[in-house]
Structure formats: C-alpha cells, structure tokens
Design a protein around this nucleic acid. Structure first.
Lengths: 134, 134
DNA sequence: CCTTGACTTGGAGTGGACTTAAAGAAGTAT
DNA sequence: ATACTTCTTTAAGTCCACTCCAAGTCAAGG
C-alpha cells in the first residue's frame, strides 16, 4: 500500500504519516527496492495505533518511547506495560475532565433552551449570575 | 480576591489568568481604584467556566465568541445556544475517540499483563502481529 | 530519450495556547 | 521616606504537532 492510499484510508495527510515515522512513533515502514514506502499489514497496525492514541491525546513523545522499547525486544515488556498503564491513567483523567465539562455544558444548554422558548426575555437579572450551577 | 489567590485556588498561573482576560475568554475583571484585579464571585464563575471548557478541549476562539455574544445582551441568546450545542457535539466526539483508545489500550494492557505473568517469554512470534486485536 | 506525476529528503514555517521578560507603578512594612 | 513585594503592561519567546517547501529520484507513457 502506498503512502497515498494509507493517507486516504485513515484520513491523515502524507506529511503526517512521514512525520510519525521520522519521529519514531511507528517503526520504519517497509520500502520497495527503490526506497518508496510500501505499507504492509503490520505497518498499518502501527499507523492505526498511533492515530488512535493520538486521538486520545497521548503525546508523540510517549508513543516514541513505546516504540523504542518495543524494538528492543522482550526484555522491555515490563517497562512497556508500565508505560501503557501510565498513559491509560492520563487518558482516564482526560475523560473525567471532559465528562465534567459536558455536565456543565448540558446544564447551560438546558437553561438556554428554556429561555429561548419562553420568549428570550425571562432571564434578565439571572444573566449576571452566569454559571451558577453547583 | 487577588489574581494570586485565584491562581492558587484553581491551580492556574497568573499569566494564564491575564491571558484569558486579554483574549476575551472572560469578561473584564473587576479592578480596584488603583487598577489592580479584584476578582468578584461573578468573575470567578467565568474563570471556572473557562478552565472547565478548556479542560475539555474547547478552543480559546470559541470561548471568546461566546463571551462576545454574552456581552451583547439577550438578543444573542439563540446564537449562544447554537454555539454551545456545537461545542457540545465536538466534545462528545472527543470523548468517543477517547473511549475507543481506552478500549484498545485496555486490551493491550491485558495482553501485556498475561505475558509478564507467564514469564515474559511466551509471546515471541505474536509480537510481530502487534495491535492485532481490532 | 523526455516528460509527467507521485514519491523521496531535510529543513523551514505555521497555529494554538500559553509563558517569560522587561520596565514601570502601587500598596505594605520598617 | 525607603525598600520590598506584587501588581501592571506590551511584546517577544517557547513548545507541540504538524504542515509546507525546495530540490531531487524513480517508474510509466509517448
């Protein structure tokens, strides 16, 4: 699979794919005799993982470290496990913050919906209180 | 409340608080006669809202727009409601991506835990398959 | 052989969100 | 009053994660 096809498959730019590889976020991609990237299944697996974890806000740096350990073989398994657990924790915290914001936003939206329905004017003095929830 | 106290209360730097205000992410903060920031309850409400929504990944730009509308009064209520709904949607999508990554991460962690328990070596050939679990 | 177009590289540029620096004014302790 | 701390401002700097560019290479069609 060419870089163009991979780029289209995952909706990510070719530049970004090259960037991921250059940084070491994924191991070196398989090449043709002429040196052109020819993504194999395993390469795609890494690309998918990278996209997935980046989507969750994991840093490039952490991914690079994970790949570095991975390439050093079985002896780094424990270290990799710890890295993943730590990242998991960070992601869980991110989700908690998102949930918190969503609750707040939903509350606000609810108030606005009522206000808009009731003629947009029944709110006046409350307006200054803004963000009163909780 | 001084900027220092607010900074400590929310674990955010004084610089960031001034930055938020300068950008218009929060309305102008109350000042003393000498021009020094003296945060009132309502100012704190805005700060909290800003921190909360930034934590969820909402952009500075969107918050600025919201505040801008808010300061224009009741006539912008519908526009604000739409803005909030749109942001809500974006945040929900962010959470979905996070959930997806968490599932994947948990699967991976599970595999690593087993491998580490079983003596760190029972994995060998599987290693190349990496990320196989959908 | 020559052109076209997709690929290669290294390196510079961009955008968002802070963060730091520099210079000066105001409130507080002695 | 003098010194110290904490505030003020504007402007420049930093960090991250891309994103774009210039110059060059390679395979296929005419």
């Amino acid at each position: 699979m060419t870089i163009r096809q991979v780029s289209e498959k995952y909706g990510i730019s070719q530049d970004t794919l090259r960037y991921y590889e250059k940084m070491g976020m994924i191991p070196p991609v398989t090449r043709t005799a002429g040196g052109i990237r020819d993504y194999q299944e395993s390469d795609l697996g890494w690309v998918e993982l990278a996209i997935c974890l980046r989507n969750a806000g994991m840093s490039v740096e952490a991914m690079v470290e994970y790949v570095r350990l991975h390439r050093q073989g079985d002896s780094t398994m424990r270290a990799r496990l710890e890295l993943l657990q730590k990242q998991r924790q960070a992601i869980v915290e991110r989700r908690e913050r998102i949930d918190h914001a969503l609750e707040r936003l939903d509350h606000k939206i609810h108030i606005y919906e009522e206000a808009v329905e009731n003629g947009e004017l029944t709110w006046g003095q409350n307006c200054s209180k803004e963000n009163g929830g909780k």
